[in-house]
Nucleic acid binder design. Structure first.
Lengths: 341, 341
DNA sequence: ACGATCCGTTAGATCGATATAACAACGACC
DNA sequence: GGTCGTTGTTATATCGATCTAACGGATCGT
C-alpha cells in the first residue's frame, strides 16, 4: 500500500478531506475538538504532508530561488545565511544554486526555478547575463525578482553595497597614506559592482596617484585561486605598485599567498587592501585592511524587498545601497608608517 | 489569461496532450515530423514546463536533498560543489539546507525535504541527531539516505575520510617531531568524526606524549569564531601545550588569530596542525600542516552511492572511507627545527 | 415565529502533468 | 487471407492536495 494521504486521515477522523486540509494549514475556522481528532488521526497513521500536491494546486509554492556565482565564498555564505534566516520566518523554503559566474549555467538555474514555480527570485547575476536572458524566464511568469550585489540596468530591484562609496573611502585612505601607484587586482570584469568600485577608487585617489584598474587581471570567477594567478600576473609585468587592492577578500587571500611566494611580505614590501571584510580578513598575517560591505545586511534587505514585491508586484523598482565602512589594519597601516618614517 | 499548459500546446499542434508530454520528455517513439510541430507550438506560445505537476504525477521528483551543518565552511563548499557536479549530470536538482549543527533544525529540514518527495538524501548529521529522528522521516517514505563525514550507527550508508587513519598519521608526525604535549581544540563533541580522529591521534602519539582530547573546548558549531574562543580557553588554562591540533582548518584559522593576539607566533612558540587541508591552509602565515580529507572525493562518492541506492533500494548498507594524506608545512616543521636545534 | 446572520464543515471541481492500456494503420509472415 | 507484431498516437484515469460555493444548524434580532 502507498503513502498515507489526507483522504486516509479524514476517513479515520470521520471528517471531510477539506476539513483535514484546513487543519494541516492551521486554520482558525475549525473547532478545537475537530482539530484534535484530525491531529490524532494524522499521528496514528503516520501522515506526511505532500507539498508537491499543495504546490500544484495552491497559488504559492512557498519557495524562493537564490542564485549566486560561487558557493565557497564566505562572503556569499554569510549573505545566504541572512537570506534564509529572514525567509524561514515566513515559512518559505530556499532553493540555492550557483552559476560559476557563467550566464549559461545561470539561465539553466533560472529555468529550473521557474519550472518549480518559485514565488520569487534573489539573483546575483553572472557578469555577462543579459536582460533578455532574465526576462525570458521571469517576464511571462511574472516572477518577482531582486538583484543582489550587481544589477543589469535601472529597471531592476537592487540591493547591495554602495560600491562607489566603498571605492572612494579606500581611495582616500590610500592617498593620505602616501601611495604613488595603485593597482586593482581580480574581479569579474563586466560586473556593475566592479565598475562602481573602480569609479570610487579613481575619485578617492585623485589625479596625482597612478591608478591601474587591472583589466588584464580581471577574471571571470571570483575565488581564491583567481587571486594567486592575478597577482602572479602583476609581478610578471615587472613594475610592482605601492598598493595592490584585491577585488574581494577571498581574491586577496590568494594574492597574499603569491606575494609570500615571491619572498615579499604584504604590508611591508607592498601595501594590500581589499573589499568585503569577511571575518577571515582580520586573521590573516598581516591583518587585512578591507572595506566592509555587509553581506548580512544585503541578504536581509534583499529578502525583505522580495517579500514586499511578492505582496505587491506592481510597485516600481527600488534600489537599496548600504554605506560601506573602512576597516584599517596592518596590511596598509604598517606600510604607511614605514614609508613615512 | 493564465499560464500556457501542455493542453494549449497540444491543441495548437493538433495532437493529444499525451503526445505533447512525450515530446517534452524527448521520447523516441514520436515521429520527427510530430515532434517538430509540437516544438514549434511550444515556442510560439511561450510554453514553460511545469515541474510541480510532473513531480506530483511521476514517481520521481528528480530532486536530491543535501543537508550540512554549516554553509560558510569552505570544506563543505567544495563538497557541495562535487555533489552538484555529479548529480547535475543525471538531470537532478539539488536542494541544500544547513542545520547549524542543531538536530532540531535538521529534523525540520528532513521534514521539508521528505514533504517535497526528494528522491534521496545526503546528510551530514548534526552531532546530536538520533536514529529515531532520521527514521521518522526516511523509513515510512523509504527515502534512500547516505551519510557524509559522520554516521549514527552501522546500518547507515556512509562516505567520509578515514578519520582514525587521519589522526594516526598526524599523531605519528607530531611524535617524531618531538612533541611532549598535544591538545585537540574545537570540533563537535559527540560526532563520530571527532571520536575517530581522537582515537587515531592517541594511537599515533603513543603513550609517551601527553594528549588532551580537549573536551572542554569541543563546541557545538564548527566555524572560525569557535576556534578563537576555544584557543582562548586553552590559554586561560595556563599550561600551553607544545602542539595544538585544530579540529578543522576553519577552526584553526580562528586559533591563529587568538595565538597572534596573545603575542605569540604559530609554528614558532606553539606548533599548530589541523585536518581538512582546504586551499586556504597553505596561504596562512605560517602555512598550516593539515591532513587532507578530500571534500570533493567524499562528495562525489556520496552522490554516486546515493544514485546506486536509488536504483536499488534493497542493497545492504555500504561504507566508503578515503585514505587521508598528511600535508607537511611550516606550522609544525619550523617548530620542529627550532626544538631540535 | 420568522428571516437574517454567522459558523464550522463539506462535495465536487480543479491544478497540469504522467501512466496505462488501447487504438488504428500498416507490413510481415505462414 | 487471417493472424501477428510493430509503430505512432490517443482517451482516460490519476497523483494529493486546495479552492469555491454552498450546506445545515445554531444564534440573533424584531
Amino acid at each position: 500500500m502507498g503513502r498515507v494521504t489526507l483522504n486516509d486521515v479524514s476517513a479515520r477522523a470521520g471528517v471531510s478531506r477539506a476539513t483535514a486540509s484546513l487543519v494541516v494549514r492551521g486554520s482558525e475556522r475549525i473547532s478545537p475538538a475537530t482539530t484534535e481528532r484530525v491531529r490524532a488521526a494524522m499521528v496514528e497513521l503516520g501522515y506526511v504532508y505532500d507539498r508537491r500536491a499543495a504546490m500544484l494546486r495552491a497559488s504559492r509554492s512557498m519557495t524562493i530561488g537564490v542564485i549566486v556565482p560561487e558557493i565557497r565564498n564566505p562572503y556569499l555564505g554569510e549573505m545566504i545565511m541572512a537570506i534564509e534566516a529572514t525567509l524561514h520566518g515566513e515559512g518559505l523554503t530556499v532553493l540555492v544554486g550557483h552559476s560559476h559566474d557563467q550566464s549559461e549555467r545561470e539561465s539553466q538555474l533560472l529555468s529550473t526555478m521557474v519550472e518549480r514555480h518559485v514565488d520569487g527570485l534573489l539573483l546575483q547575476p553572472a557578469q555577462d547575463l543579459t536582460r533578455e536572458q532574465v526576462d525570458r524566464y521571469t517576464k511571462s511568469t511574472e516572477t518577482p525578482l531582486v538583484m543582489m550585489m550587481r544589477y543589469i540596468d535601472e529597471q531592476d530591484n537592487y540591493v547591495g553595497p554602495d560600491n562607489e562609496a566603498a571605492g572612494l573611502i579606500l581611495g582616500e585612505h590610500l592617498r593620505t597614506l602616501g601611495a604613488r601607484s595603485v593597482t586593482l587586482v581580480g574581479g569579474p570584469r563586466k560586473s556593475s559592482a566592479r565598475q562602481g568600485r573602480i569609479a570610487g577608487l579613481r575619485a578617492g585617489l585623485g589625479t596625482a596617484v597612478e591608478f591601474d584598474s587591472g583589466e588584464a587581471t580581471a577574471l571571470p570567477t571570483n575565488y581564491t585561486d583567481t587571486g594567486e594567478r592575478a597577482m602572479a600576473h602583476v609581478f610578471d609585468q615587472g613594475k610592482v605598485p605601492d598598493v595592490v587592492v584585491g577585488y574581494s577578500d577571498v581574491v586577496t587571500m590568494g594574492m597574499y599567498a603569491e606575494i609570500y611566494r615571491r619572498g615579499l611580505t604584504p604590508g611591508r614590501d607592498v601595501a594590500v587592501a581589499s573589499f568585503d571584510d569577511v571575518p577571515m580578513a582580520s586573521w590573516l598575517a598581516p591583518p587585512l585592511t578591507s572595506v566592509a560591505t555587509w553581506p548580512n545586511r544585503v541578504g536581509k534587505a534583499a529578502a525583505e524587498l522580495l517579500l514586499a514585491r511578492i505582496a505587491d508586484g506592481a510597485a516600481p523598482p527600488e534600489r537599496i545601497e548600504f554605506e560601506p565602512a573602512l576597516r584599517l589594519r596592518a596590511s596598509t597601516l604598517s606600510w604607511g608608517r614605514r614609508s613615512r618614517g
